[in-house]
Design a protein around this nucleic acid. Sequence first.
DNA 1: CTGAAAGCGCTAACAT
DNA 2: ATGTTAGCGCTTTCAG
Lengths: 354, 354
Amino acid sequence: MTERDVPPKPHTVTIYDVARRAGVAPSTVSRTFSRPGRVNAVTAARVRRVAAEVGYRANPVARALSTARTNMIAVVILDIANPFYAEIVRGAQAAAAAAGYTVVLADAQESDWLERSTLERAVTAVDGIVLASSRMSDLAIRMISKQKPVVVLNRGVVDVPCVVTDNARGARLALEHLSGLGHEHVTYIAGPEASWADGMRWSSLRESAAKLSVRLRRLGPFAPDVRGGVQAAEQFVAQPTSAVVAYNDQLAIGLVRSLITRGIGVPRNVSVVGFDNIAAADLVTPGLTTVAAPLYAQGITATRHVLTMIEGGRDRTGQPAVLPVRLVVRGSTAAPHRSLDPPRPGRGVTTSSP
Amino acid sequence: MTERDVPPKPHTVTIYDVARRAGVAPSTVSRTFSRPGRVNAVTAARVRRVAAEVGYRANPVARALSTARTNMIAVVILDIANPFYAEIVRGAQAAAAAAGYTVVLADAQESDWLERSTLERAVTAVDGIVLASSRMSDLAIRMISKQKPVVVLNRGVVDVPCVVTDNARGARLALEHLSGLGHEHVTYIAGPEASWADGMRWSSLRESAAKLSVRLRRLGPFAPDVRGGVQAAEQFVAQPTSAVVAYNDQLAIGLVRSLITRGIGVPRNVSVVGFDNIAAADLVTPGLTTVAAPLYAQGITATRHVLTMIEGGRDRTGQPAVLPVRLVVRGSTAAPHRSLDPPRPGRGVTTSSP
DNA sequence: CTGAAAGCGCTAACAT
DNA sequence: ATGTTAGCGCTTTCAG
């Protein structure tokens, strides 16, 4: 019934078909598409017309073989279900598209092994790679970075170009906000041990805590998702503080939800601030105060960077590019409720942990 | 300082290098990898050893050019930020990987135009395509389906293989559940007009309503996200019913949230059931009762199907494959609270809309 | 079972 | 500005 049952011979139209029908050499057809300007305007026009008529479509594979460029870059993410990556991917896609590149998304599903094997296959087929958070070792990353242009997001790896957010400033902003509100004792809900960002956030928090005279405590590590936040709540309620900073928004959201379920008010009894500013941060109740990361910009920046490297630009393996952050204040933070605040009143004075 | 500054000649190791070093013909090396069995066991072993030694890695592009198979399939999704697709993609990836294929994820960003242009480029570079919900017209889909194997998810398109969920049964289950609880008047919060699934759900709901003697009303269309649910709430509260069925979980979640904010209890005053059973359905409070779609299975099924078509299998363009659904009952549904239930008591008796 | 040779479709020097 | 001629790295007949 449909026409598609008929043609058993899907002979692809090649450059030669067009060349013959247009009365020019194959190379001219090629040039018309890949090197416009190096061909007479009217000839080019004719070629294009014929190409359109016969429905010619350049075979990207053949082109790739001869140019050694696939015009694809791989963006590796840890978990496609994590909303954190959505904006990053969008940015990457936008930057890539603008340069004529296609993004191949690889979901590592939080598995170091899967990430490596996926990359193993991909590395040969793409021109560059953006690692949007990686579970691989620095060594492994450095290794593949020797084969293809690689830039790492949200993590510092020696000898490999990186783009990170200003975790130090973010941590400071969060703590200053809390301190300004009157909180003197805050808990940090840590993310995965292997997370570079977690380390940065914690150490910056410690520094700021010292300066601001707030006592800081750490709980964790926890999985960086809502479930992890629920677990964190269990430990937290044992000896609560009036404020908490969580490794990321999902952890914070899980914590808040669990706290509320237990009858502990947010921000009435506990103020919570997260990191990242994922879309959900604005949807939960109360809205989550969080350190906003320029997700889209991260994707753009990282991708532009690989693109530059691909085009021959020197991989300025210097300091990582650091993107600015800002504090988005929503409903999850408020001045402490004296009655429930200091677990051990009269004792809390200054200093953070050593 | 690093070794990578030295080699200005990244000469790739080819089949020829291996062949020479192993003392066999290039074709033998090729066979060793692509056609094992057609080569003497010990020769093969030697080749493999040498290959490993020199770090040979087959160039997928060259292979693709000569075989006309890229071993990649494209999975097109509407919105990477929509959690609905996460599991589908996982399933697709699993099925693809099992068959030695790589998934290229294309995010259409809810844009018909972007979807088409992306596909335009991808179609030449992949062996098959899975359209996990598409905004394109049936005609456009049918068009590309003539160039490459395509299977459509969650939508019926004539002459194109599809895999859908049992919307009819899902709608029935939802309504039976509500009816069984004692609800006699339910509102359907509709999704996008262009959604095939929305049409199916609505018509099935109508049928079931007639049989169960529940009065059914429709509100919408609304964007299929949390924000849409919030909007729906505004209209809903004007003339509420004791129960509502939403086009999808996100809409339901937005509705519930908004209702609670307005002081309307769920399920105390209004029972809500969604569709899809996305991860968040189990995380919100109260948990969302929903018609669970076998997301992962959808991805698997659709992908296996394209794979079959790619391998030459006849594209059984018959009836769409329909996957089973089940009702997951959580906290968002309960027996109606007589006091607030029928907007106009004494009137509600039977029949649904025509 | 293994060699030799002919491309896959396109681009990239060389020539003209 | 356009035509010619080699390949890119791999698979695949076709012989031996």
